[in-house]
Structures are given as structure tokens and as C-alpha cells.
Computed example of a mutant assay.
Amino acid sequence: IARHQGNEYWCQYREDGRFQLTLPSDLAIDDIEQFEIRFVDAPIRVTSKSPLILEPDHNAKPSPTTREQLKAKMRKMLTASPDERQELVQAFTEFLGSEEVEETDLVGVQQIVTFLESKGDLQLASQLCHFALEQFSNRPDFTSQIDWLKSTASRLSIVGKPLQIHGRIAMTSEELDWSAYENKLVLVQFWATWCGPCKGDLNLALSLHDQYSEQDFCVLGVSTDTATGQLARFLNDSDFPWTTIHSPIDADDSLSKQFGITQIPFNFLVDKNGRVLAVNLRGEELAKFVAMRLKSNTP
């Protein structure tokens, strides 16, 4: 059976390996080259139009599938412009809505959402996240991905909402009193002893603490380490002037799972009313934001 623009036609297989079609006399085909033949995994070329003869071109490179095209776009994400990021999300949502989705496709959603968030494009990240949830929230075979999407969607929409932090203080095992951070500008910094980039973020947090601790700015560390002994040694050596709670990433009630955090370093900046001001600001961008906020004396 030969297909052309959604229509199917019987064709005769010839001894020379080609296919001959007899089309209805009243049928006009604008682009006669756009044929495919069922069970023939190769591009089809027309070798004769009268009679109509089709031949599989086994030497031709097959056209990339939609999934392959999307993977190629994803490989260029790091250098993508805002418009290209928008196009990628649009292409991915169209794909998710029309194709038979595999588990690896939702892993792709996770990668794109994480990348968009790192670029501060929270609205676009949230758009893709919520679309995937609407499409696949009832799929039992995607449980882990759906759980990640739910927690991530919650985090992406958290700016402007109250933040609640719970956990036990690393060195004493006492329960954290989150109410002690009321009326302060709080940097909640997620990190781990094994994370190289985290050390740079902790150094910046220390610098901000030294500059602004007398202006109601403070830091709360959240270690995601699983090794308690290694964390204790690191904290003893570092002697940070702030509280650090221990919330192992593999714990059922970990803050990382609660907020859908899959990469560290990560942070929340919380205003004096306990509401999230910003998510994952880093480096100079974070330093400028903190300075501006304290200078304006805005709650």
C-alpha cells in the first residue's frame, strides 16, 4: 500500500524491486514525490510518471524523526536566544500532544525546565511544566517524573508566596525555628560538601553576611549531604556564622524533594514578610539584588 498526503492506494510489486501504481483518473496530485510505502523503511523516489513507478532509495539518508529533531534543538540550548527557547518549548509541547510519549521524553522536559529556570525564564519553564502535567498526570508508568513535575511546578510559581522551611540543625539535631527569621531578608542556600560550585556560592553568602548582617540580612544553610560525618567535619572547619540544617537529598521529607530541586547550588531569597522574592539568583546578580533591596528598605 502506498500513502500520499493521508490517502492510501494499492500498488503492485514488480520483479525489478519497484512498485507500480494505477491512480484514479480524476485524481490530481500536486506533489507526486511525496509518497511512502508501508513496510518499506526507506525514502521513495518516482522513476516514472507514466506509468507511475516508485522505487525505494535505500542509499538515501532517512529524514530525522520529530524526536530526533527535538534532541538536536536541545543540544543547542546553552547558546539559544530567548526566541529560540520559546520555539523549543512550543515544538516540545506540540510533540507531547501528538506523539506516543516515552519516558525519555519526560526526562527531556525535566532538562528543558531546569535549563530555563537557570536562565531565569520561570514563566516559560512553568508553561512547559504545567502542560506536561496536564497531559500525563494520570500515567502510572511516569510516577517519578510526574512527582518531579508537581514539585517543580510548585517551586516555579512560588515567587510572591510564603515559604516554610523545616528541618533539624546539623550540629545539634534541634528542630529549626523558622519563626526566628521573621522580619529579616533571608538567603536560604542549598549546598553539599561534595559540590564544587557550592563553595563559590557559600563564599558569596559569607561576604553578604559580613556586609549586611547588621541590616537584618541573614543566611540559612541547607545541606543536602547524605554523609553526616563528612558534613560535621566540613562545618567544623568552615565555622559559618549562620545556622545550617541537614536535609539529606535521599530522605522522604527532604526539602529538595519538596521543592523539586535537582541541582545545587540553589537558593531562595525571602523577604521580611516571609514571602519568596527571587529564586536561584547567583553571583553578581544576587549581590546587586540584596544591596538594592536593603538600600530601598523595602520589607
Rank of each mutant, 00 (worst) to 15 (best):
S296P: 01
S137F: 10
H130Q: 14
T22F: 11
G17H: 12
Q12Y: 08
Q263S: 15
V290C: 06
D210S: 11
D121G: 03
V40C: 05
L70R: 02
D105S: 12
Q258V: 13
Q230V: 10
D271N: 15
S25M: 10
E84F: 05
A278N: 14
A291L: 03
L54V: 08
V89L: 04
E174L: 05
T22L: 06
Q86C: 04
I44E: 01
P62S: 10
F131I: 02
T93R: 14
K71I: 06
R293M: 10
M292E: 15
Q127D: 15
T172P: 04
L206C: 06
L21G: 03
S144Y: 11
P248K: 07
Q263H: 12
V279P: 00
A287S: 12
L163H: 04
E102Y: 13
K49L: 15
K272C: 04
Q69R: 15
I165M: 05
L106C: 08
L149C: 03
T224V: 13
S223V: 05
S126H: 11
P82I: 05
Q34S: 14
R14H: 12
D57L: 10
A28L: 12
A72Y: 08
S98D: 12
C218I: 11
A232P: 00
S256C: 14
I44D: 01
D147E: 11
V219A: 00
